[in-house]
Design a protein around this nucleic acid. Sequence first.
DNA 1: ATATCTTTGTAACACAAGTTACTGTAGTCC
DNA 2: GGACTACAGTAACTTGTGTTACAAAGATAT
Lengths: 210, 210
Amino acid sequence: MLEKLKEAYHFIFEDELLNEIDRSGQLKEFKAGEMIIDFGDYLKSMPLLLDGAIKVLREDSDGDELLLYFLERGDTCAMTLSCCLGTTKSEIRAVAEKDTTLIMIPIEKMEEWTAQYKTWRNFVFESYHTRLTEMLDTIDTIAFLNMDERIMKYLQDKAKINQDEVVSSTHQQIAYDLHTSRVVVSRILKKLEIEGKIKLNRNQIEVLDL
Amino acid sequence: MLEKLKEAYHFIFEDELLNEIDRSGQLKEFKAGEMIIDFGDYLKSMPLLLDGAIKVLREDSDGDELLLYFLERGDTCAMTLSCCLGTTKSEIRAVAEKDTTLIMIPIEKMEEWTAQYKTWRNFVFESYHTRLTEMLDTIDTIAFLNMDERIMKYLQDKAKINQDEVVSSTHQQIAYDLHTSRVVVSRILKKLEIEGKIKLNRNQIEVLDL
DNA sequence: ATATCTTTGTAACACAAGTTACTGTAGTCC
DNA sequence: GGACTACAGTAACTTGTGTTACAAAGATAT
């Protein structure tokens, strides 16, 4: 574990802190599609992403979902982070986008390290900043873009996260993430294919315009 | 200034820190409608809200605006906060919603106090948490509500912020904040009036259903 | 190979929201 | 008072998106 940890975080944390994380943290692995955190979960530890990718979702009162953003290596979930501090329930759902390994850090350590390590403080602030920026981006997307643009952006983001220009999703899955209907997704994907921006196959969409 | 500061913050900061803020901070006053921060501004100090209210907006590439949230006494602008740390440009615009007084704190102090005062750290984390939650609420609003509900929520929020059930805005101003058109706002306001939820007058809307 | 299920394509329609255009009305300035 | 401006009301139309319904194509199981 220490190896992987160093690989991902040695640029920002000093050895002493890395060793502390190694001692207190618990390694967890999730298969693609597994749920990591659900709405209303009480969180007693904070995740540090070592490898893989996580999809973060929001749900409304009718059970409709909406994709907020993806997390990659080196990220932490700032929502979780602030839930930990407030010991409030999770406002979001986190699902493994691909096979994912992460380290769970007990909340008690958070407070301790925040006081003790400047690098940790900076990391936490940096994470909050990144997440706020990401949320702004999400707001821009749903407020200012039409469905064509949102779908195209979704495909590009997903291709980037998975480092594969072929996105393996059904139209229904995309509809869930974007909070729209399957028919709308099919219709627009077909239009994007005619425009030459993507290539459609069963369960697969090749993104030509990255 | 120290008086006002104590009035608003003595519950969360110790006297020593309050005195520090008093020494380093600079008092600023803004009239309702004045712009406090604009897109692209570089920020060298961080605002603490003493009195009044602030409206925080987002803008897209075409210059279209969208209201993100309101700030009240005891709040700070977490976006500003993270801009300060990253010395990046402001992603948002802040406008005084009513006459507002705030204290500007130089960024150098931020780092210092974060290391030194636990209450300050908690305040900063708390602020980030509140802001993230507020952003989630904004996302819910634009993603899951229709225009009728959004306008009603807007009026209720605005009435609450101004502690006045009479909202003094033109239909055009509401349209800007919600990123829609004046005609749509007029049409829906009329409908809400017929439903008995509001009462319309020139430049004024009385919110009956708070 | 037949039956079944999942995924995709498409047509026809419904509806919310945005657009254009015009009118009326309340204030302001001369 | 008359001219002007800002604000509000409303009608008629367009457009984007969501809905319902059904058919076809590919995958999977028996």
